[in-house]
Design a protein around this nucleic acid. Structure first.
Length: 444
RNA sequence: CGGGGUAUAGCGCAGCCCGGUAGCGCAUCUGCUUUGGGAGCAGAGGGUCGCAGGUUCGAAUCCUGCUGCCCCGACCA
C-alpha cells in the first residue's frame, strides 16, 4: 500500500478524552474514531489489526474442532424470556422495538440463540459433541464505558458454544477450548494466564479467565511465578484426545492463580515469596462450563444411547478481539508509539523513501516495493513528499515490525537501512540483501 | 447509578472573573528555500463560541434549563 493513497489520519497531538496509552496511540495512529461514548469506527489501519487477530482466533478455533457460523446482532426478546434472562440482564441490555412494536434487543451474548438453533436440528447423541462459534459485534450498555475499545459498549466477540451428552464429555470440550485459548494468545505474543473466575450472570461451575499481565490492567491478579515460564501447547496436539488436552488444563491449573474476586490470601501467602507474582491484568478471554442451565429451560435435548431424552451439557467460550487490539498495545509500546508483534501487525514492513523526487531513491523504493509485495509481504510504502523526520515519527508511531529506510546518501554506496522497531537495531545492507532477508522470513 | 469536571477552527488551548462582534500553536492550502529524526520564510482559507431560553442597546463572557463528552467510585468480553 502506498501511503500517499491510503487513509491514515495520524494525529500529532493526543485528543484529550484519551486516558490510557492504548487508547491514545490508537487515536494518534489513525486506527480508531470515537462516534459516541463506547462506540467506535474502525479506520483502515485499525481494521487490519482486528482482522489479523480474527484470523488467528479463527485458525485456532477451527484447529480445536469448533465450527464457524454467523448469528445476527438483533435478537427477539421472546428467546430471552425462555431462559428467564430477559429481565435478569437488566439495563445492560439494549432493548429495541421494531415497527410492529415487537420487542427486540441488540445481543450482548448468544447462549439463547445458539441453543435455539441447536434444538431445531439436533436430535441424537450421535451428533455430539458439537461446538459452534461466530465472531460478531455485541452490545452491552455499560454504565461507564472507558479506556477506548478496552471497555466499549459495542465490541467484537468471538463466542463459541459447546454441546455434549454428559459432563465428562463437556469437560473434554472445555479442555479443547482451554488449550486453543493458550495457543491463540501465545501466537499473538501474549502470555495469558488462566485464572479461576467467578461465573457471573452467565452461570455455571467451571470457569477460567485468561489474563495477560500489563501494568495498566483493570484488575488486580495474583499468581505463581512458574506460569511465566510455561510454554503454550504445540500446534500438533491432538484435540480429540481427551487425555492430551486434559493434561494441558491440569498443568495450567496446577499453580495458584486468581483475580482479586477469587483471591485466597492464605493460599497465596503459603507460596514462597519468590514465587508470588502480584500484578495487574487485562481479561482477554473467559470460558465457562454451565451444564444444563440453558438446555433445560429451553428444551435442548437429544436422545441418548438408551433412547431417553436428555438435556445437553453446554459451555461457552469468549474472546474479545476488539479488546485484544488495545491489550496488545498496552503490552507492546514505547514512548515513540506502538510496537506490533509480527503476527498481528497491520503491515509487515514500513518502507520509507527519504527523498521523494530523487530519481535513484524513487527507483530503488519502487523496485523494492514491487518485489516485496509480489513475495507476499505486506508493505506500507511511505511515498509522501515529507521530510525524513516526519516519516520516521510516523513509522515509529504506527509500529510496523520492520522499517526499511531508503535515502540518497546510503544509495550512493548502494546501501539501504533496515531497522527493527522493537529493538531499534539497524543494519546497513544492499537492496538485494534486504529483499532476500525479508523474503526468507516472510516479512515476519 | 452517586460524585467531580468540561464543551471556543481538524487537534491542543487562551479569551469568560471585569459584556463591546474571537485569538494562539499545530494541522490544511499557495509560493520560495530546504531534505537522515515531526524544517524556515511569506501569504491564505477555516469557527451561527454544544443546544434552547432569558437579562442587556449589545452575550463566547452574566442567569436558567437541556445535551454531549471525560475523570473517580460501585458493576462487566
Amino acid at each position: 500500500m502506498r501511503l500517499s493513497k491510503y487513509f491514515l489520519p495520524i494525529l500529532r497531538e493526543t485528543p484529550k478524552e484519551a486516558e490510557i496509552v492504548s487508547h491514545r496511540l490508537m487515536l494518534r495512529a489513525g486506527m480508531l474514531r470515537q462516534e459516541s461514548a463506547g462506540i467506535y469506527a474502525w479506520l483502515p489501519l485499525g481494521l487490519r489489526v482486528l482482522n489479523k487477530i480474527n484470523a488467528i482466533v479463527r485458525e485456532e478455533q477451527n484447529r480445536a474442532g469448533a465450527i464457524e457460523m454467523l448469528m445476527p446482532t438483533i435478537q427477539s426478546a421472546d428467546l430471552w424470556r425462555e431462559s428467564n434472562r430477559y429481565d435478569d440482564y437488566g439495563k445492560e441490555m439494549l432493548r429495541i422495538k421494531d415497527r410492529h412494536e415487537r420487542e427486540m434487543l441488540f445481543g450482548p451474548t448468544n447462549e439463547e440463540m445458539v441453543t435455539e438453533i441447536f434444538r431445531a436440528y439436533v436430535r441424537s447423541y450421535k451428533d455430539l459433541p458439537l461446538n459452534l462459534y461466530h465472531i460478531q459485534w455485541k452490545f452491552r450498555d455499560e454504565v461507564r464505558p472507558r479506556f477506548g475499545v478496552m471497555r466499549s459498549r459495542e465490541f467484537l466477540m468471538k463466542d463459541a458454544y459447546s454441546f455434549d451428552l454428559d459432563q465428562a464429555s463437556a469437560e473434554h470440550s472445555y479442555a479443547r477450548m482451554f488449550t486453543a485459548y493458550l495457543r491463540t494468545f501465545a501466537r499473538m505474543g501474549l502470555k495469558a494466564i488462566p485464572m479461576r473466575a467467578d461465573t457471573g450472570p452467565i452461570g455455571g461451575k467451571l470457569s477460567h479467565e485468561f489474563i495477560i499481565l500489563a501494568s495498566t490492567g483493570e484488575s488486580e491478579v495474583f499468581c505463581h511465578k512458574d506460569f511465566l515460564d510455561f510454554d503454550a501447547p504445540p500446534a500438533d496436539i491432538d484435540f480429540d484426545d481427551a487425555k492430551a488436552v486434559g493434561g494441558v488444563v491440569e498443568k495450567w491449573t496446577s499453580r495458584y492463580a486468581a483475580t482479586s474476586d477469587m483471591h485466597d490470601v492464605s493460599a497465596f501467602g503459603a507460596l514462597s515469596g519468590d514465587d508470588q507474582v502480584s500484578a495487574r491484568g487485562i481479561e482477554v478471554g473467559h470460558i465457562f462450563y454451565f451444564g444444563t442451565k440453558y438446555s433445560e429451560p429451553m428444551r435442548a435435548v437429544v436422545n441418548g444411547p438408551d433412547g431417553k431424552e436428555t438435556p445437553v451439557h453446554m459451555g461457552s467460550y469468549g474472546i474479545g478481539p476488539s479488546r485484544l487490539v488495545a491489550a496488545l498495545i498496552e503490552a507492546n509500546h514505547d514512548d515513540a508509539g506502538i510496537i506490533w508483534p509480527a503476527a498481528v501487525a497491520p503491515f509487515h514492513v514500513g518502507l520509507a523513501n527519504l527523498k521523494v523526487g530523487d530519481a535513484a531513491t524513487d527507483a530503488a523504493c519502487a523496485d523494492l516495493y514491487a518485489r516485496l509485495t509480489k513475495a507476499g509481504i505486506e508493505v506500507l510504502y511511505d511515498d509522501r513528499d515529507e521530510r525524513p523526520g516526519a516519516k520516521f515519527a510516523t513509522l515509529d508511531l504506527i509500529g510496523l515490525p520492520t522499517q526499511v529506510i531508503v535515502g540518497p546518501k546510503g544509495l550512493a554506496d548502494g546501501k539501504i537501512e533496515m531497522k527493527d522497531r522493537r529493538t531499534g537495531a539497524r543494519e546497513t545492507l544492499s537492496p538485494d540483501e534486504a529483499f532476500n532477508k525479508l523474503a526468507a522470513s516472510g516479512g515476519l
